[in-house]
């Protein structure tokens, strides 16, 4: 836990360093007052200061407060990584269309992670993909993306 928090503090310090350096390249002050670089510079500096204070606090704390592991069990980590991967993978929506993307996404979550039965999985996945697509398209006037591949588009996906 302590190690992770220290690492986080270092990340925040790095972030503030980056912001400050980028802000120096911007106009700091104009005729009428603060320029585009004014707030980023000072916010970056404050962030840096706060992070350093936090880091010092972390080092001062006794090792007693080292309450266990930061990361969950291996299984939990895998589960989290898989969910994130699935979320990021929905970016293929613009290529294979909303319906197919959402169907695969739901099947993955329900079947692989939720361990639902085949029928539960299929019925929920269909409602959330094909059902939502048509509901939004017809009644709610929200056009969800169709596939940009003509082969899939021809199938109505």
């Amino acid at each position: 836990m302590q190690r992770v928090q220290r690492a986080a503090a270092v990340c925040f310090i790095a972030l503030s360093g980056y912001v400050c350096i980028a802000a120096i390249g911007m106009e700091y002050y104009t005729k009428l007052g603060p320029g585009p670089g004014f707030f980023p510079f000072w916010l970056g500096s404050i962030m840096g200061g706060l992070s350093i204070v936090w880091l010092i606090q972390l080092f001062r704390q006794s090792e007693k407060s080292n309450e266990g592991r930061f990361l969950p069990e291996k299984k939990g980590v895998i589960q989290i990584v898989l969910i994130l991967a699935a979320l990021a993978a929905t970016a293929v929506m613009s290529v294979i269309g909303f319906q197919l993307t959402m169907f695969l996404f739901m099947v993955f979550l329900l079947r692989v992670l939720g361990r639902s039965s085949v029928w539960t999985t299929l019925s929920i996945a269909l409602v959330c993909s094909v059902g939502v697509f048509h509901l939004f398209g017809r009644y709610l006037d929200v056009q969800l993306p169709a596939s940009s591949l003509s082969m899939l588009a021809a199938l109505g996906l």
Partner: peptide
Amino acid sequence: PYGILSAIILSFTVL
């Protein structure tokens, strides 16, 4: 089951 609920919630956040 929370597994099903969270899957549905996630699909709605994407949407």
